[in-house]
Simulated scan of single mutants.
Amino acid sequence: MRTRGPSVLGAFVAASAIVLTGCSFGSSATASGSEDVIRFATLPLTDDPTAETPVDVIAALLEAETEYTVEVTDVPNYSAVIEAIRAGHEDIGIMSGFPSALAVNTGEVDSLIAWSGGDDPVSTCLVLDSSPLRTLTDITPDTTVAFADPASSSGYFMPVHMLYEAGLEMGDDYEVLISGGHDRSFLALRNGQADVACTATIFPSLAGRGDPMFPFEVGETRSLGESIPMPVSTSVLANPGMGDAKRQALVEALPKVFSVENKEALGLYGEGIGVGVDPIIEPDASVFQPYVDIAAVAGVDISDLE
């Protein structure tokens, strides 16, 4: 079963505002609703309601492995997923590293499973091939850089850190555009609203495929630079108030669902599955600690978020 939240149409709030939003909750609510249903909050990968997405594949695989009914709810952004889980409205959600770190550091959201980020760069900053910008150091205070979501690892925190390492301070050395999604950053780049679009390194591989998530042909864009790798690529977050039986079913099922055998079927959600790399089951908060230092570059302190 799938329900849909509203689409994101405008700019998102700054990263610091997201942290404050997270702090507005009290203690984590006990999961409500039927204990024989797994409630799965996710971000829509496309605005096309008829499109088949990897989320539907995940739900089907989870149902097969757990024998629970899985209800999927699309919500508009990363922080909304975290808040829904934290408040007990949803049981689980799939997050990249930074929003996972933000959520886990509240002490009110758990990580059931996480995957290491590997050794490859996670983010890249793209320009149109016709752009006069050749390297990151060509960016000036008049350059507009589009980021996906201020709680996104690959679409915000990692590229902000990359630009910082190149000597570029956010807000001083370039203009910031929060687009609301990776695909919207690409539209901003195509339409001239942004000079640079910072995103995940996986997206340029979609060039020339007619994929709405990356509406460019091969050679239409090029990279100005790539980020460092992420210590954690992906995590499945959970509300600690769910029943023990449901939690245990998920702990046992998730490594089977997110397996090398299912990698192709999972599409973008399978990118974090490394061959020969075992997932971290119920990781400790210390696993996410490296993100705290990187987040500080973006002016966000998640080390003692309450």
Rank of each mutant, 00 (worst) to 15 (best):
A295G: 10
E67M: 07
L62E: 06
L250Y: 11
S116K: 13
V297I: 15
P132I: 02
P255Y: 03
A64T: 14
S7M: 04
V55T: 14
G22R: 12
T53S: 13
L133R: 03
P44V: 12
A265T: 13
P255W: 04
V72Q: 02
E306A: 14
L43Q: 10
A114R: 05
S123M: 05
M1W: 03
T21V: 14
L305P: 03
E282A: 08
G26E: 05
V122W: 01
E83T: 14
G26C: 06
V287S: 02
P231R: 06
I178D: 03
L128C: 02
S28L: 04
M170V: 09
V13Y: 11
I85Q: 02
D47N: 08
V277N: 01
F186A: 04
P215K: 14
F98Q: 01
V236L: 04
V297L: 07
A51D: 03
V236N: 01
I38Q: 03
T46N: 03
M170W: 02
E35A: 13
V300R: 06
E261T: 10
Y164D: 05
R39Y: 09
C23F: 09
M95L: 15
G117T: 07
F216C: 07
A64F: 06
C125T: 04
G267P: 02
A151V: 15
F186M: 10
G181S: 11
T106S: 12
G267Y: 08
S259C: 08
A15H: 15
S111Y: 06
T3C: 00
